[in-house]
């Protein structure tokens, strides 16, 4: 609903009440305020998150990822603002990348979006605080966010 594009957004995804799932919020809290950058914390993905990203020029989603080795950090492009993510699994699904593609196809100004993934265990129990291995990855992840912001 707003006018011009806002520049940059960093979204930390994850639930701090579920142990290492909260690594995204832990990273942005360690990052602290950055000039000209909006920072959010959220648990929601898919189309609702994609809709919330409308109006930004670039976005970075910081998220826990069980597909990576625990403590590993990877910065990957998620949606370039144009091309359509393929994959049979989205026959009736709307992941974040698919949601962004839908909105782009409908003429909405969606941001080029990256994901900063941090490896976590698959079992995420209800408790607060990160495991030592994941906590040790936070400084590296913060450095990657800064690198993304600098570029």
């Amino acid at each position: 609903m707003s006018g011009g594009l806002r520049a940059r957004l960093v979204v930390a995804l994850g639930n701090p009440d579920r142990g290492d799932d909260g690594v995204g919020p832990a990273v942005v809290r360690a990052l602290g305020p950055q000039p000209g950058v909006e920072v959010w914390e959220a648990v929601r993905g898919g189309l609702p998150l994609a809709e919330a990203l409308v109006g930004y020029e670039r976005a970075l989603v910081v998220d826990a990822c069980p597909a990576l080795p625990v403590g590993e950090v990877a910065l990957v492009p998620l949606f370039d603002g144009r091309s359509v993510p393929a994959g049979e699994r989205w026959l009736h699904g709307l992941g974040l990348a698919q949601g962004l593609a839908l909105l782009a196809a409908a003429g909405r100004p969606v941001p080029a979006t990256w994901a900063l993934a941090i490896g976590v265990p698959t079992d995420l129990p209800f408790r607060r605080g990160l495991s030592p291995k994941v906590a040790r990855a936070v400084p590296h992840a913060v450095a990657e966010v800064k690198r993304w912001l600098a570029n």
Partner: peptide, 12 residues
Amino acid sequence: KIAIDPITRLEG
């Protein structure tokens, strides 16, 4: 190949 899709972490 590792597929990364934010907030589709598989717990079950």
